[in-house]
């Protein structure tokens, strides 16, 4: 066999494997979307869930998922950003840095139920935060941090050192070089990290059952005061997210239309992630162009 033939066969093989992956992906997405889409209606999206009769919607759960995502990112993104800057710009290449990295990575493979119980015993009970979006956001921070830190650090690393040298040569401080030159250049990578971790937030259930809770009290969407008990902005209220709702409906749901609620909710979840994915990418490209002065 000539190298050219090998090359062709190998390329075919790679294409074939990719095709299988694509087929699996399409099957999964198709299965979720097609079995769920017929149950998605305006009514489904805008009515509260029901615990025993048919016809419940997912309004509050959908909002809770989004709100939880925002809160989680508010807590975990700055932490991750600061730590990634430390790891990539300040930390020396020694055993201490290695230890810190290992410690952060260990977080990512903890089973979520363990993190959930930890969050429950520490934040919900000991710190008296109670079942709340805030407790949920803190628990999710544990999963988010390793992902975010690693991807941000990776994208910071990918910025060539010449950019740093150029910043220093201009008389800028290290910090200002990071803020003004490195970060904008690393932005697309950082965004990918955020998108990936956002997926994890949307999809997580086990950790939230014990922290954000699995009941969705009636929300008042007209109440914009975040300190009011029933306000939709109150971070201290218990909140059932979409993934938790899917879990609950599937495991202990007694509603007659549990199957269709679960299918519909899964489809909505996928679509929301899709929108988020493309939205974040579009915003990222826009910001990148603006910040790096590209046209």
């Amino acid at each position: 066999m000539t190298p050219n033939q090998t090359d062709r066969i190998a390329t075919q093989l790679i294409n074939f494997l990719v095709l299988i992956v694509v087929l699996i992906l399409l099957f999964l997405l198709g299965d979720i979307i097609f079995s769920g889409f017929p149950h998605v209606s305006w009514h489904f999206l805008t009515s509260p869930s029901s615990s025993f009769s048919a016809g419940g919607g997912i309004r509050d759960q959908l909002f809770n998922s989004l709100y939880l995502l925002v809160l989680t990112l508010l807590i975990s993104f700055p932490l991750a950003l600061g730590s990634a800057i430390y790891l990539s710009e300040y930390a020396g290449n020694n055993w201490r840095t290695g230890l810190i990295r290992t410690a952060i990575e260990v977080l990512s493979s903890l089973p979520s139920v363990v993190v959930g119980l930890f969050g429950y015993l520490l934040f919900v009970i000991s710190f008296h935060i109670g079942f709340s979006i805030l407790s949920g956001a803190i628990a999710l921070t544990f999963f988010n941090l390793p992902l975010l830190v690693r991807s941000i650090e990776g994208s910071l690393h990918a910025v060539p050192d010449s950019q740093r040298e150029a910043g220093i040569a201009l008389g800028l401080s290290n910090w200002r070089t990071i803020r003004g030159i490195i970060l904008p250049a690393a932005l697309p990578g950082i965004l990918t990290g955020i998108i990936l971790s956002a997926g994890r937030v949307f999809g997580e259930a086990a950790a939230l059952i014990y922290t954000a809770g699995q009941s969705a009290p009636i929300l008042n969407y007209a109440d914009w005061n975040p300190t009011d008990g029933s306000s939709f902005l109150n971070p201290m209220r218990p909140a059932e997210t979409l993934a938790v709702h899917i879990w609950k409906v599937n495991t202990e749901g007694v509603t007659p239309d549990a199957v269709s609620v679960s299918a519909g909710a899964s489809a909505v979840l996928i679509i929301v992630i899709l929108i988020f994915n493309f939205g974040a990418r579009a915003i990222g490209n826009h910001l990148y162009k603006k910040m790096t002065g590209g046209k």
């Binding site: 508010l74 807590i75 700055p78 932490l79 709340s132 971070p235 201290m236």
Partner: peptide, 9 residues
């Protein structure tokens, strides 16, 4: 956001 987290309770 961090502050908010800290003073939540």
């Amino acid at each position: 956001g961090l502050l908010l987290g800290g003073c939540g309770s």
